[in-house]
Every structure is written in C-alpha cells, then in structure tokens.
C-alpha cells in the first residue's frame, strides 16, 4: 500500500464510487438532458452523478487525510469459487438441466470451504440436488427440466 493512503477503506471506497460515476457518465453521453422544467431521460441521472462525484471525492480525500484500519485479507479463492459456479449455473441450467447444472455448481462451491473433504462435498451436493428437486420442481412446479437437451434430455 503506498504511503499516501492513510485510510485505505475510505480511499478505495471513494475510488470505487468514482469508477462507477465514470461508467455511468459514459452511458449518459447519449441521453438528452432537457431542462429543469422539462426533464429529459438524462436529467435525473445527471444530478445523481454530480452528487455522487462530490461524495466520492470527499470519501477519497478523507482516505488521504485521516488514518484508518487496513482493508484486511480478501478471500480471492473463495470469491472465485462462489462466483464462477453461480455463473456456470446460470449459463447451463437450460442446457444441462437441474441435476447436472446444480450438482456441478454446488460441488464447486463446496471447494470454497476450508474444511473440504470428498465425503462432505458429495453428501452436500446430493442432498441439495434432491432437496431442490423436491422443493422447486415437485413442490412449487417450476418449469425446470431435470436433464437438459445438451445431455439427451428434453
């Protein structure tokens, strides 16, 4: 951490808000602003962006002036092992069906645990897939197939 950042939590929070402002500011280009009397689609977001810029700068500056605690450890492995299985689930549910898609996703998320062993992982996966089938498909009647078209289902 460079020395000029005295309060990293504030500094990076401010930075995050400013990055978001930049992304939305880019999206604002194509929106007509209008006037206060007849506001266009871009007026309200523009006002918000101006306020958020001010707040973001204030938080960022606070991070340079006051001292604060360090951010601490970020569980990158856990973060990836939670996020990617969720995305995998979204991408494959239609194609693979509930059993394969949820099974693989849940199995992968269990890897995020520090006390991983094969028995626990398999047991959790099986129980969750069966419970999801009972609750969501049998019980609530959600239109999700058990075996998708990619693996010879419907």
């Amino acid at each position: 951490m460079p020395g000029f950042i005295k309060n990293p939590k504030d500094f990076f929070a401010g930075l995050l808000f400013l990055v978001i402002v930049a992304i939305f500011g880019w999206g604002l280009r194509e929106l007509p602003i209008g006037t206060a009397f007849r506001m266009g689609p871009g007026y309200f977001p523009m006002v918000l962006l101006i306020i958020l810029t001010g707040l973001g700068v204030a938080i960022l500056v606070n991070g340079l002036r006051t001292s604060g605690e360090p951010i601490g450890m970020i569980p990158w492995r856990g973060l990836a092992l939670i996020t990617f299985p969720i995305i995998f689930f979204g991408a494959t549910l239609k194609g693979l069906g509930l059993v394969a898609s949820l099974g693989i996703s849940v199995f992968a998320t269990t890897l995020a645990s520090r006390e991983w062993n094969i028995l626990y992982a398999v047991a959790t996966t099986v129980v969750l897939v069966v419970a999801s089938w009972l609750i969501f498909i049998k019980g609530l009647g959600l239109p999700i197939s058990l075996r998708g078209p990619w693996i010879g289902g419907y």
Binding site: I82, I86, F89, G90, S105, V106, T110, Y120, S132, L142
Partner: peptide, 27 residues
C-alpha cells in the same frame, strides 16, 4: 457453515432464475 453456504447459494440461484427464467438475472 460449510454445509450452510452451498445451500444458500443453491436456493439463491434457483430463486433468482425462477423470477423470469432468465440466466442474466443469475449473472
């Protein structure tokens, strides 16, 4: 917790997908 969090994830995944059967909601 190691049993709990996969369960929460599974419920959230199916739940959010079922809102409009749209994978993008899951992403």
């Amino acid at each position: 917790y190691r049993v709990l969090f996969p369960a929460i994830i599974a419920v959230c995944c199916i739940g959010v997908y079922s809102v409009s059967n749209n994978p993008f909601d899951v992403y």
